[in-house]
Amino acid sequence: MNQSFYGLLLLIFLVAPPVAHFMESHMVIHMHMQMPMLVIAGMLMARFFQKRFPTFFEKWNSNGIPGILLFVIIVVYWMLPRTMDEALTTNSVEVFKFISLPFLAGVSLRDSWKKLSSLGKNIIIIGFTVLFIGLGWLYIWSPVQLCNNYLIIEQVTLGWGFLLTAIGMIVYLGYNFFIDPSAYE
């Protein structure tokens, strides 16, 4: 219960207009801090839903694959420049962002991750790594401004954010591959 409550508090904090305004004023903070934090808020709140509707999750997400697919779809959707732009200009899209990221992506990620096999987990991480490299490349070297709301410099910064995240994930994959934690614990 406790963590669900903190998740809710985090969501309220993120939605609060001054916070949202600040975070959305930088493209990279918008995508790489606000959005992940929305997902994290959802992951914290997932406990509440899992307890409340256990049969629902059991029935629809018994092996974790439907949930993770939903997560991927939502997250990839929000990585399109066009959707970010729309969130800034159209209120209803902004609302959709604040609902979809925590409740559709966050909750389903929490419910699915543990159910996935390690192969499944690796596929997801590798998939996102490749995607992030692609997006990093796109944002850094795109000759045109992709968002109406952000200058090119913002776009390039975001590109580097993507590339660094991808490097971080590669390091993580390597670490996982070479190091067996059970040898130490």
Partner: peptide, 16 residues
């Protein structure tokens, strides 16, 4: 990993 995240958050914007 947390350290790298904090470093990235602090450095990506000004360095770019």
């Amino acid at each position: 990993v947390l350290m790298i995240i904090v470093v990235a958050m602090a450095y990506v914007i000004p360095l770019t």
